[in-house]
């Protein structure tokens, strides 16, 4: 594994057996269906997708909060999927999470100071005095008043709670922070504060982010590279600006075309591509390409043959038989 890759997932599958029967057979609900990706040191990899696409399940599989059904996850060059819980511990310290719901993710019965100190206590890092000093320092780092650390979560606003969640995630000096919809519960002005904070912290502590969100604007703003998920698969992955300007996958193209935009310039807006229907049941996947029933570009091959996830242009991966915008992107070599 080259040094600049912090996390590598190879063909990760997570499926749940379901009691439902589809076409007479007990169905297998495949939430993550063969995802391969690399997260490079110091970058922000954004994962964007609609609800139910498997982005949160993928994140949980990557940090081993959920056992994978098959596939490999290497972190710092170490294969994690075969490790025991005890063996995982030292690696877990390096991977911390920030959750979506700032109300549900903080224990209401513990003071916020304790909440931020707990990871250090559990991992037996430092004396009480050292931990205390570190908690104060973390509070200042995330823009909270250290005098508030004896208060309880309910005394804080949503944005402040998310700052507490971020402080907790930083307490063990992790190298990877996995943020699962960290700002989707916040109002737009507070969301901007938290996003700016996360950007500043990344610079200050050389953090690597895996940033999961459904909001395409948020993901473009924070990410260096972006992966687009649909029905448990990454259908496109590439450098953020290029992916947003010249999407390769028809799903990405349609998704970007319907984001409501502010009419603040005279630039013509993208032509809206409204894809009909709903996301299929992951227990009853379409044959061939998962997106073909809703795809405006689908042809016969799309119903019969699953497109491979290939590097079509340097750094630009896509799983599609009929990628868009190919001619306007510089070819390989």
């Amino acid at each position: 594994m080259s040094d600049d890759v912090l996390l590598r997932a190879t063909d990760v599958v997570k499926s749940y057996s379901s009691r439902r029967r589809v076409k007479g057979l007990r169905s297998l609900n495949t939430a993550v269906n063969g995802v391969s990706l690399e997260v490079k040191r110091g970058e922000t990899l954004g994962i964007v997708g609609e609800s139910g696409c498997g982005k949160s399940t993928l994140a949980r599989c990557l940090v081993q909060l959920l056992p994978v059904t098959s596939g490999h996850v290497e972190f710092n060059g170490v294969e994690l999927t075969t490790l025991s819980r005890r063996q995982l511990r030292p690696h877990r310290r390096q991977m911390q999470l920030v959750f979506q719901d700032p109300y549900a993710s903080l224990n209401p019965r513990r003071t916020v100071g304790d909440i931020v100190a707990d990871p250090m206590r559990i991992n037996k890092i430092g004396s009480d005095a050292e931990i205390n000093a570190r908690v104060r320092e973390l509070f200042e780092t995330v823009g909270l008043d250290p005098s508030a650390l004896r208060r309880y979560p309910h005394e804080f606003s949503g944005g402040q709670r998310q700052r507490i969640g971020i402080a907790r995630s930083l307490s063990l000096n992790p190298s990877l922070v996995v943020a699962d919809e960290p700002v989707s519960a916040l109002d737009v002005s507070v969301q901007a504060q938290v996003l700016n904070l996360m950007t500043d912290l990344q610079d200050e502590f050389k953090l690597t982010y895996l940033f999961i969100a459904h909001d395409l604007g948020v993901v473009r703003h924070v990410s260096d590279r972006v992966g687009v998920m649909y029905l448990g698969e990454i259908v496109e992955l590439g450098e953020a600006e290029l992916l947003y300007e010249k999407p390769l996958h028809p799903y990405t193209e349609a998704l970007l075309s319907v984001v409501p935009e502010l009419n603040d310039t005279d630039a013509p807006r993208r032509e809206r591509i409204i894809i009909s229907g709903d996301v299929p049941d992951p227990a009853d996947r379409p044959t061939g390409c998962s997106f073909h029933p809703r795809c405006p570009a689908a042809t016969d091959i799309c119903t019969s043959e699953k497109p491979a996830f290939v590097e079509l242009r340097p750094g630009r991966f896509v799983a599609c038989h009929h990628p868009r915008n190919v001619d306007s992107i510089a070819p390989t070599s």
Partner: peptide, 14 residues
């Protein structure tokens, strides 16, 4: 404060 999907935003106004 709105992060944009249509253009590159640098730092968000807070």
């Amino acid at each position: 404060a709105v992060p944009r999907a249509d253009i590159k935003t640098r730092r968000l106004v807070t």
